[in-house]
Design a protein around this nucleic acid. Structure first.
Lengths: 136, 136
DNA sequence: TTAGTTGCAAAGGCTTTGCACGCGC
DNA sequence: GCGCGTGCAAAGCCTTTGCAACTAA
């Protein structure tokens, strides 16, 4: 699981310097950057990279299932490269910090078939909210 | 729980024709409108109502805890007046339809204290995703 | 070679803001 | 009458798009 770049190469993702930098910026755990933050970090290594290119790359990584979009209540979406480690998020209601957490139990099992209204349910997204130690 | 307007009056919410119409539009179950949809429906009864006023009113209803913001992955936030009936959402990945559902079990209990990292967790938000009968 | 990628700049969707006027309490 | 609410128009933030130049495979 650990190396995003390697996985992308194996999957035959066309590699360019811009795409490599984006993947490198995202690689790791507990990473939840906005598109703009990804662009800023990428631009440290590749000053000419454009926002549009970052958005393109992020969109593809999401389609490939290598990265997940996290829409916190704030405005900009955040991108989470931890797609191969099923996990949920714990968000501080005050400062917005996000932590990855790994609850016990399977939330999917909590939705009985009579509550599924004929839907074929395939995913669950769980977000815990509260105050982090610094904000409490 | 049923009448939003009544609750607002009891809480001393300053009432104007615009605010009344917004509250009336939102009142009910399984309502998940965007700000723009709220504006459109409100404008049927009060043609001069402005978007800014609708946004103001929605923002206050959210602060008051009478309405919940639902950010599906799409662009515009949706507003759910069902804040007094704890429930989760079942979203169709294809057409975006939202249904309210009432799972068994308490998701809060699934997050053990060693996974809370010192946060005081107060809410959980659960979204089930899948295909609805029409889109399957 | 050639299809896919990039950068730019402009457009687009959703939401917020500043300010003068108007209205609920 | 006072203070908050309203409408308008403009600005703002985040994201997408069109297109010509470029480049990985």
């Amino acid at each position: 699981m650990s190396d995003l770049l390697e996985r992308l190469r194996e999957r035959g993702w066309r590699m360019t310097s811009q795409r490599r930098v984006v993947a490198e910026v995202l690689n790791g755990d507990h990473v939840h950057l906005t598109a703009d933050e990804v662009h800023a970090r990428a631009a440290q290594r590749l000053p000419e990279i454009s926002r549009a290119t970052v958005y393109n790359a992020l969109g593809e990584l999401v389609s490939l299932g290598e990265v997940t979009e996290v829409s916190t209540d704030g405005r900009a979406k955040r991108y989470d490269p931890n797609a191969h480690h099923p996990h949920q998020h714990l968000v501080c209601s005050h400062c917005g910090t996000i932590r990855d957490v790994h609850p016990t139990g399977n939330p999917l099992a909590d939705l009985p078939s009579e509550e599924r209204f004929g839907f074929s349910v395939s995913e669950v997204e769980v977000t815990y909210r509260g105050l982090c130690p610094s904000c409490a």
